[in-house]
Amino acid sequence: MHDDHSEKHPGSTVSYVIGFLLSIVLTIIPLYVVLNHSFSNMILVYVIMIMAVLQFLIQLVFFMHIRESEEPHYNILAIALGIIFVFAIVAGSAWIMTFNSQVQ
């Protein structure tokens, strides 16, 4: 009946399975290194943040299929801008509010 609406949901079972497995791995690694104190705290924070960002990107690609949306890719642009703003909010606040540790 609605053959003119042959819009497909993007992705395939394979892509979901890959995304799922990679996510599991990227959850277990940080968990492992933190519980075993594999590195100094400083390095640990970097390592687990990198893992988190990687997992986020993997879910964007394999679960949310950000690359497969229709042209032009406004949503990629929006996410990229969003990440810049996230950086401003989180890093900016942390930087600006460090003065408190000096005062207290």
Binding site: L81, I84, F85, A88, G92, W95, I96, M97, T98, F99, Q102, V103
Partner: peptide, 21 residues
């Protein structure tokens, strides 16, 4: 519209966030 996001501290310079900020 993007840059507007990077100037907000000028409303509270006197908070004393330090010279670099």
């Amino acid at each position: 519209s993007v840059y507007a996001y990077f100037t907000w501290v000028h409303h509270f310079f006197t908070m004393g966030a330090g010279a670099d900020v």
